Each structure stands twice: as C-alpha cells, then as structure tokens.
Simulated scan of single mutants.
Amino acid sequence: MNDHNVYQTNNSETEETPEQAQQEREKEMQDDEEELHKLLLPNVHDLPLTPPSAIDFNFVAYFAPDFLKPGHDQFVYRHANGLCVIGLAPTHVAFKDEGGITAVDFNVGKSDRSGFKVTGKRKKNAQHFESNTAVCKVCTNNDSYIVRCCVKGSLLEVNNRLIKQPGLLNSSADREGYIAIIMPKPADWLKIKSSLLGLEDYKRKREEC
C-alpha cells in the first residue's frame, strides 16, 4: 500500500460522519439543558429548611457585646453600600426584665433624636456622632438602659415607630424593632469593625457566659 492510500485510510478513520456530528451536538445541548436546570431548579435536598431573610441576604451581622456596660449587647448590620443598622442584640440585659421593654425615648443628650430630618442625596442636616453617643433610652418596668451608636458616623434615621410601638423590640428587635441607621465613613468603619464580633464569635462568647 502506497503512502497516498495510507493517508486516505487514516483520514477516513478519523473523519466524523454527519450522524456522529449530530449526536455530538445533541449531547452538548443536553448537557447545557441539564446545567441550566440545576441553576434554575436546585435539588430540593440542598435547600435550607427556611429561606434566608432579607437581613441575612443583604447584610453582614456584627455584634458589640457588653458595649460600655456589662449586658449591653447591641448588633450592627452592615449593608454592602456602607449603611449600618443598629439595634439591641437578643442577649441584651433589657430583655431579661419581666415584661420586656415597655417604652422607648429618643429624647436623650441635648436633643430629641426623633426630630431629626435628613434630606437629599447628600443627607443634609445629618448629625455626626461618636460610637459612644446615646441614641435613645429603652425602659422596662424596673429599669432603663441607654442605647448607643456603636459606630462613628452620620445618624440618618431613627425608628420612630418604637415610640408608639415599643413592643416591636420584644418581638422583632433585629427587623421592625431596629433602633437607627448610621452611615460611617469607610476609615471609621474599619476602625470600629476590629472591635466587633461576627455572628459565630458572638454566639460562642454568650454560650460561655
């Protein structure tokens, strides 16, 4: 057999037939459909028992246990845009009083925080506070507790609903019962972040107590 015949034989062995090409295309399409199906319809056994809340999905949770005083545990939920939502952590000492929290007063320091009005994209009239600045006072049947900013920044909003509905703190302190929203500068956030605990570290700390 000469070289020309050998080349023709090898070429015919490696050349893909139309049927083989069609089968290959169908297999690729099937693989793509299976991959898309996995993305759109994940295995039900891989899903969590309960879907993540908007808080879990959009915010990173930090905690300031014993902030300035023992038992004064607060949370800081930080959004990707830098906004920080602050409130009472579930282990805050106020929740241990019989009857829970019965009143919230934003008239602390030298001004009433509930009267702040921030306007425009540049947040005009925003008050700039230190991390230890008092935001409000929460009251129980037996005592009262000062809630502080936890982060240095501009106070953009306080939750005025708590004035008429203080019970929101007892039922959903990490959602409808949040205390305030603060916008720290990036440099100030980096400083305070090192003193805060992540969720797992916070849980371990409180389990040890």
Rank of each mutant, 00 (worst) to 15 (best):
N58R: 14
M1Q: 13
L88T: 00
N142P: 00
Q8G: 02
N142D: 05
D66Q: 13
V76W: 03
P51F: 07
A126N: 01
Q165T: 02
R206W: 11
E15S: 12
P18A: 07
H45K: 11
L68E: 14
E176W: 10
V76H: 02
P52K: 02
P65G: 13
V60C: 07
P52I: 04
K191V: 09
A64R: 04
A103S: 12
E208A: 15
R206D: 08
M183K: 14
S144Q: 07
E19P: 08
I192T: 12
G153H: 03
N141F: 01
P184A: 09
A64K: 09
L197I: 13
E176P: 08
D32E: 13
V6H: 11
L156F: 09
D188S: 09
A21S: 13
V158M: 07
D174E: 12
A61I: 05
H79T: 01
F129H: 15
P18T: 06
N107I: 03
I182N: 07
D201F: 03
Y178M: 11
Q30R: 14
E35G: 02
P48F: 10
S53Q: 04
K124Q: 10
P51S: 12
V85G: 03
Y145F: 06
A134W: 06
H45F: 09
I146K: 04
C149T: 09
Y62F: 15
K164M: 11
N5C: 11
P51R: 11
R122N: 08
D112G: 11
F59L: 14
N58A: 14
P48W: 06
E34V: 12
E157I: 03
T17R: 05
F57W: 11
Y202R: 04
L197N: 07
N2W: 09
D188G: 10
E98I: 03
D112N: 15
I181N: 03
H79W: 02
E33I: 08
S12C: 04
A103T: 02
T50L: 13
D105E: 06
S114G: 12
Q30P: 02
S144T: 02
E130N: 14
Q127S: 07
I101N: 04
I101A: 01
N11P: 01
D73C: 05
S131N: 07
H37M: 13
K205V: 08
E157R: 06
V44S: 11
C84V: 08
I163F: 07
A54I: 11
T9N: 09
R25P: 04
S194N: 12
T102L: 11
P42W: 08
S154L: 05
A64I: 05
L36T: 03
Q22A: 14
A80T: 14
S131K: 10
D66V: 11
G109D: 10
R78P: 00
P65S: 10
M183S: 15
P184V: 05
Y62P: 01
V147N: 00
I101C: 04
S111G: 03
Q30W: 06
A94K: 00
G177R: 02
T140S: 11
C149P: 01
G167F: 13
G177F: 03
T91Y: 03
Y178R: 08
H128W: 07
T17L: 09
Y178P: 05
R148F: 05
E130A: 15
H45P: 00
P18V: 01
K69D: 15
R122M: 10
S194T: 15
F57R: 15
Y202C: 06
G109M: 07
G109V: 12
T119A: 13
D143T: 00
G71P: 02
D73W: 00
